[in-house]
Design a protein around this nucleic acid. Structure first.
Lengths: 81, 81
DNA sequence: TTTCATTTGTTCGTATGTATT
DNA sequence: CAATACATACGAACAAATGAA
């Protein structure tokens, strides 16, 4: 496990957008390849030390961008090409 | 003011989707014409007796559908034709 | 089949910040 | 300045879907 990038509380960018940026990088770099599963909401909470609503906002943002798809009860994934 | 339609707690449909349905009807029927302002989050809360996040989810749903636009600090509106 | 753990969905509460009027 | 309105973020609880045991 790589050390997680950390949220910068001094950055005026909302926390959820900072984290969404981290995951967006992972998708674009291929570190999260098509078909890969994103960290769960709970993992996002624990990794970055944020509340669930913040974790959910992260995923919602990426979903709104069309970068990921969420399957209830299963998880959130990078869609296949 | 017409008496508000009421949320049916026995309907398995999520409350925020029920309320979004009410407002969607108002938009499609022309009761909320292009340019009209939607009820605020607080008004939705009070009218239907729901929490803020629920009221926000109502507006977000309609926004995601492209039926309304939100102007921060002003309100949510039915966009002009 | 039933049970259990995991994951997302929904709902409520509270607080603070920012922008507009 | 004050009122209004949306944005963000913390906490808490229960429901629903899924899959594995």
């Amino acid at each position: 496990m790589a050390r997680p990038r950390e949220v910068d509380p001094w950055d005026p960018t909302p926390i959820y957008l900072q984290i969404a940026g981290f995951l967006r990088e992972d998708i674009e770099s291929g570190k999260l390849a098509p078909g890969a599963q994103l960290p769960s909401e709970k993992e996002i909470q624990q990794t970055y030390g944020v509340a669930r609503e913040t974790a959910r906002a992260v995923v919602r943002k990426l979903r709104d961008e069309g970068r990921v798809v969420t399957l209830p009860g299963r998880g959130t994934f990078v869609p296949p090409g």
